[in-house]
Computed example of a mutant assay.
Amino acid sequence: MTTIRTRRGRLGIPALVALAVLAAGCGTRHVGTTAQDAGAGTPTTAATLAQGKPVDFPCPGETPTPTPTRTADPTAAPTLPPDHYAENHGFKVPLPLRGRSRCDGLAAAQRLKEALEPLRMGNDYTPESTRGRLAGLGYPAERTNVYAVSRTAVRFLVEAPGMCLTGTMIPDSTQVEAFDGYPDHRGCDEPRGGH
């Protein structure tokens, strides 16, 4: 007669040890225990983690804008059918930065504006001058794309750590926006193609 042996006893012990380590929380990061989480006068990340996404809060130097409330108008015209063009091109809409990253993006955009303002005031709209200013801020040439739109307009795109910065310098103003990539890919370049 053949006896079938089982290893139930040997295999069960390593599994129980692994389960005990996981249950103990080994390697778990506790919110608010690092120097970065504890300071800067910003809310802790507990609220962020509870909701599963970063919470926006006023950034330094920013005044909060009240969220407009919408009330239904009984005399309003019926709603229009969905805009399929916008629906089909939603992959080209940049993702916004949220939470602390949003504040970092606003600060980076302000630094770019201040660095480019002397060029705008001096009517210097060359890609070379703009690229030089961006390099002076620490953005390497291989992570920047600068091109002339016209004799008096320059567009730029910078792939910065943790964000994308895009903007235009024209005679009236320098505009810079920070964003978090695109829905279909995390790069800073606008996706091509369509759905």
Rank of each mutant, 00 (worst) to 15 (best):
R131A: 12
A35S: 14
E114R: 08
T33Y: 15
R120G: 06
G194V: 10
L97P: 02
T152E: 15
A46H: 15
E117I: 00
L112I: 14
V17P: 06
T28V: 14
Q175A: 00
P161F: 01
E128D: 11
L119Y: 04
E159V: 06
M121E: 14
C188E: 04
G105H: 04
R98G: 00
T79F: 01
R120M: 04
P64I: 08
L95R: 07
V158T: 06
P64A: 13
L16G: 10
L106W: 01
R133T: 12
A72C: 06
R133W: 10
A153Y: 03
R98M: 03
R111S: 05
R143Q: 13
R10Q: 11
T144M: 06
D37N: 14
G90F: 03
T28E: 07
L106R: 13
T33K: 15
V17N: 06
A77V: 04
V149Q: 15
D184N: 02
T65C: 00
G132Q: 11
T45G: 15
A141S: 07
L11M: 12
S150I: 14
G61Y: 11
L165M: 00
L157K: 09
V17W: 11
A38S: 09
L119V: 02
F57H: 12
L11P: 02
L19G: 15
K53V: 13
L134N: 06
L106Y: 02
A24K: 09
R8Q: 04
R70L: 14
E114Q: 11
A20L: 15
R10W: 12
L106Q: 09
T3A: 13
V154Y: 08
T69M: 07
L165R: 01
I4F: 11
Y85N: 01
A109K: 02
T28I: 10
G9L: 15
R10F: 14
Y147P: 00
D172C: 01
P64R: 09
A86S: 09
G136N: 15
R133P: 11
D83W: 03
A15K: 07
T33W: 15
T44G: 13
A148L: 02
V154A: 07
T168V: 08
H84K: 03
H185E: 00
K113H: 03
T65Q: 10
E114Y: 04
